[in-house]
Simulated scan of single mutants.
Amino acid sequence: MRFAICNELFQDWPWERALELTLECGYTGWEIAPFTLGRRPEQLPADRRRQLADQIQRSGIEVVGLHWLLAKTEGYHLTTNESEVRTRTAGYLGQLSQLCRDLGGSVMVLGSPQQRNFPETMTHQQADENALSVLEAVLPDLEKNQVTLALEPLGPGEGNYWNHAAQTIRVIEQLDSPWVRLHLDVKAMSSEGKPIADVIRESAKHLVHFHANDPNLLGPGMGEVPFEPIFAALREVAYEGWVSVEVFDYSPGIETIARQSMQNMRNALLHLDV
């Protein structure tokens, strides 16, 4: 099982220090939030992209890809009825796929609930149709850059679109493209009303990426959710992708979160092997 960590955890740390701690803790991958690269990450010059990719590679860390794709942006939305906005959103996602590839990544996680929620006047089917129009438009860029877009279900506390893995899979199956697949997140799955391990098993055919965390917004094993059944299910379905630690509450401190998350995941795996 390959472990990565999301780079926004390190906040204003120099990349050299952040990468050193990443490797020291035992992670081998970095998942990058575009907003950590500047206000307009899609406009990052080619030479700067090469510098960042080389720095990460030299440290011994692999770039998994990007997430928080639409966070801290303006003018983009997935389910809006405004066709110009959807066209602009598809164009931006296409640009991010090029950025992802230039940095050495191959997966982009589409969460960003604020840029996909739909109003009460719209049905879920209409939201699906609008989202499909965006996803269809970005397919050529995904294929060109060999980047997979991983759609992320999120709990109802964050929005009203793609609250369950099954809803997300419905769109994935309608699209029927190898470049659009499923991402699962422990915090989000905890709101599905069924065991997380069951969600993993039911979604295995489409699963391409995975986030480890807890509903309390901290890292894996830092809350009430046990990870032994989760890792057992991932093994059962022969999941071969990354397990990336993504947290939202940094109050315990960056080093504590990074170290404790990894130790908790290792302990969970050890218990499976006993």
Rank of each mutant, 00 (worst) to 15 (best):
A4N: 06
C6I: 08
E8L: 11
E8K: 08
R17Y: 04
A18C: 07
E31M: 04
E31S: 00
G38E: 07
A46M: 12
D47V: 03
R48E: 04
R48L: 00
Q51F: 13
Q51G: 15
A53E: 06
I56Y: 01
S59V: 07
G60Y: 08
E62W: 02
E62V: 07
G65C: 02
W68L: 10
W68A: 06
K72D: 07
Y76C: 04
Y76V: 02
H77S: 00
N81W: 04
E82F: 04
V85C: 07
A90K: 03
A90H: 12
L93Y: 06
L99Q: 13
R101C: 03
D102T: 13
L103W: 01
M108D: 14
M108W: 12
S112N: 08
R116Q: 04
F118Q: 09
E120H: 09
H124I: 11
D128T: 15
L135V: 09
E136H: 15
V138P: 11
P140N: 09
P140L: 01
D141P: 10
L142Q: 13
E143D: 12
K144E: 14
K144N: 15
N145E: 14
Q146E: 14
V147E: 14
L149K: 05
A150H: 12
G155H: 13
N163P: 14
H164G: 15
R170W: 11
V171E: 14
Q174G: 15
L175V: 12
D176I: 01
D176A: 12
R181W: 08
R181M: 02
D185E: 07
V186C: 12
M189Q: 15
M189H: 10
S190W: 01
P195Q: 05
I196D: 13
R201P: 12
S203Q: 07
L207V: 06
V208C: 12
D214G: 02
G221A: 07
E224A: 10
V225F: 00
E228P: 07
I230K: 05
F231D: 13
A233V: 03
G241M: 03
E246T: 10
S251W: 06
G253Q: 05
I257T: 03
A258G: 10
N267A: 05
D273L: 10
